[in-house]
């Protein structure tokens, strides 16, 4: 058996195994969706993997986030909230240009949680960093501390909120990783939109789950964290940076 033939057979076997297993994996994933009375578990670590070489010249993720969570501008860019934004990069020496979506990185050691005086800024057991707006006093120290500029302070009264996404004046907010969707077993709105209309650059999943695509890819492909020097162990990882 020559090597080429052997390799071909190997790939074929892998493909057959993949086709047989894929629906099963999907079933397992669905079966693992948490029931409503079950608390978020520390066994999970929700994360995002964003391949910026595929990040298209669009802002579908931003629009989807705004629609899902009900944040929108009031024509005052400096005080308007942005939970997710497209950031353009250009290398100072080579001129190489890239773009990527930037949002809360859902750190394992979030500076915003460290500095919050009341504990309103907190990290849920499954790794999602949130603001308990019932306890937020609006001091904005977390905005000072966040290395990613991911947080917004709500500068005006808000009406017409989404039922799943309460928002109000005088507190700080940021990307929730669409926690209300994740708790229903769905993916965040940005990921859904990117994979439907955009460059299919985003993958959402449990970083701890060996069966999850995100786990497999960060194991076998290069990826990086923004400001890895701060050792925050972010839940959002980038490829192609």
């Amino acid at each position: 058996m020559n090597p080429d033939r052997r390799q071909f057979l190997g790939w074929g076997a892998a493909a057959v195994a993949g086709a047989a297993l894929a629906p099963g994996l999907r079933l397992i994933e669905l079966a693992q969706a948490r029931s409503p009375e079950e608390a978020a578990s520390a066994l999970k670590r929700w994360g995002l993997l964003i391949d910026i070489t595929k990040c298209a010249d669009c802002d579908d993720c931003v629009t989807a986030c705004s629609d899902e969570n009900g944040w929108k501008g009031h024509g005052r860019p400096e005080t308007d909230p942005q939970w997710i934004r497209k950031v353009s990069l250009r290398d100072k020496r080579t001129g190489y240009a890239q773009a990527l979506p930037m949002m809360c990185q859902h750190c394992e050691h979030p500076p915003c949680v460290d500095v919050c005086p009341t504990g309103a800024s907190f990290r849920r057991d499954d790794g999602i960093v949130l603001v308990d707006k019932h306890a937020c006093i609006g001091c904005r120290y977390c905005v000072m501390a966040c290395p990613y500029g991911a947080r917004s302070f709500i500068h005006e009264e808000i009406t017409g909120q989404k039922a799943d996404v309460p928002r109000g004046k005088g507190v700080v907010e940021s990307c929730t990783l669409c926690v209300h969707r994740v708790d229903r077993g769905e993916t965040p709105a940005c990921v859904e939109a990117c994979n439907r209309d955009g460059g299919k650059a985003m993958v959402f999943g449990d970083l701890n789950d060996p069966a999850a695509e995100i786990h497999r890819r960060i194991r076998s492909e290069p990826s990086s964290q923004v400001r890895a020097d701060l050792a925050l162990n972010t839940g959002v990882r980038y490829q192609g940076l």
């Binding site: 949680v113 500095v115 005086p117 009341t118 306890a135 006093i137 001091c139 904005r140 507190v171």
Partner: peptide, 25 residues
């Protein structure tokens, strides 16, 4: 200047002891 000065009582009853602000209170 707080966004929610009406919640000062929260700042006086809930502490995150890792926060420099909380030490300062």
């Amino acid at each position: 200047d707080l966004g929610r000065p009406d919640r000062l009582v929260v700042a006086m009853t809930h502490y995150n002891f890792k926060s420099v602000f909380a030490w300062n209170i």
